[in-house]
Design a protein around this nucleic acid. Structure first.
Lengths: 244, 244
DNA sequence: GAACGGTATTGATGTGGATCAAAGGGCTCC
DNA sequence: GGAGCCCTTTGATCCACATCAATACCGTTC
């Protein structure tokens, strides 16, 4: 065991090897020796207050971000003002991959609560992943996972009815909270009904009604943003047993 | 300059450096010297007949595919039989990126016409992109572009009405045909109304009616799968001037 | 060149979710 | 700790698209 006496800096050293999120984040699956090499990867940390932008659509892309604490939403805005939430991100997840393609961000990333991210300069990531095979592979997996997730959302938006969409959303949130060591059945949503609606292609009233309906049917207990899932199999049944 | 006298083989050497699609494909933006290195990248070519699968959801992932000729659709199928087309791909575009994340494909890729692909063993791509920086970067851009495209589809599915979706689809097709040296205004769709509908989150009847309406309004001339765009600005206006 | 099956068009009707509206509740910020 | 405002819920009505249905068309195959 190494010394735990901290040096006299308020700025804690940014080190993947010391991060308790590494099993969810970029270093996942890396040999401990490789993780040590990652410690030069993170440029700095950055705190983002609730409702503030981590980056905006159109800005020059220079880094991707790993969420250390808090949560975010990403959205796309059309000229005519319509907007669409494209995702919600929690700790350990990576933000900014959209910017690689054109070297400009193509969406906005906004903190849902006071948050902190690790800034990973992209050129450094590319450089390091040319040297560390396992990092390269893990990074590719993360990008691919985002593509697969997006396909799931397309399925949801293109083929599911309102209550199915919300059930899928709740099950997904539950699963992600579980992966982070939280309760699978009880959690606090950081986003509004409007934001959930935007993500699910529904109006906020429809989201609210679906929640009320789930409550009536004993599937969940809803108290504003606090959710208790009472019948996970019931929610899953809602998804799979689709009656045409 | 190397000898250009071909050996006596019917099997043409698979060579990115000789391919007229390289400006659309993986080698895009690479220094000619680097492109030469890519010639060992493509394992083989594979012909796929119309309606046949290039790969299926659940299959082990080993390679990505660059389309040399023809076109494909990708779709996701739920247990209850519902399916969603997640994309249409044309020459020079890359298929199979979904498989990296779990080492299994997560969607089906089906040829819309008799087609041919270059098989790119993924381990070889990763190896080579550790050596060739420009290849690495181009590959990352391609993955990122897919993510950005998916966000566009989410916007379409989540926030647009039927005619806007179809207009967006037609403009997108036009733009991609243009990039391949074909007419921007006249082209042949390879997919059915049902497949377009699935992609756009609409029923085939709705797609058909939207086509008829565009025709009435003089925006396009439609004859089954043959499309002539008569008023591109008109289609664009349909997209941007959304009246809430 | 006739027959067939998959594809497309068009019409009539139904419905899920949007829209409009109003009231209640809780969080945030001073 | 209180005021204000945003967020949420619920009800009434509307409408875009789905569904059901029938016919027409086209490319393919023998």
């Amino acid at each position: 065991m190494k010394s735990v006496i901290p040096l006299m800096t308020t700025e804690v050293k940014t080190a993947c090897s010391q991060c308790n999120l590494r099993e969810l984040c970029l270093p996942f699956g890396l040999d401990p020796r490789d993780v040590d090499q990652l410690d030069e990867l993170v440029g700095s940390r950055r705190k983002i207050k609730r409702q503030q932008h981590l980056y905006r659509s159109g800005e020059v892309f220079e880094a991707i971000y790993a969420i250390r604490a808090g949560s975010f939403k990403t959205d796309v805005i059309l000229e005519d003002g319509r907007d669409q939430v494209t995702g919600f991100q929690m700790t350990g997840e990576v933000l900014g991959l959209d910017g690689i393609s054109t070297e400009h961000h193509s969406c906005n990333a906004i903190a849902l609560e006071d948050s902190e991210v690790c800034v990973i300069p992209f050129s450094r990531l590319e450089e390091l992943s040319r040297q560390v095979e396992s990092l390269q592979h893990q990074f590719h997996k993360i990008m691919s996972r985002e593509i697969v997730r997006d396909h799931g959302v397309m399925m949801l938006l293109g083929s599911m009815r309102a209550e199915e969409r919300l059930a899928a959303f709740l099950l997904n949130m539950s699963q992600r909270f579980t992966a982070r060591g939280f309760s699978p059945s009880e959690f606090h949503l950081r986003m509004t009904r409007d934001e959930i609606g935007s993500y699910l292609g529904l109006k906020l009233e429809t989201v609210s009604r679906a929640f009320s309906r789930f409550q009536e049917e004993g599937l969940v207990a809803v108290q504003q943003k606090h959710i208790r899932i009472l019948d996970t199999p019931g929610l899953k049944r809602l998804l799979n047993h689709h009656v045409a």
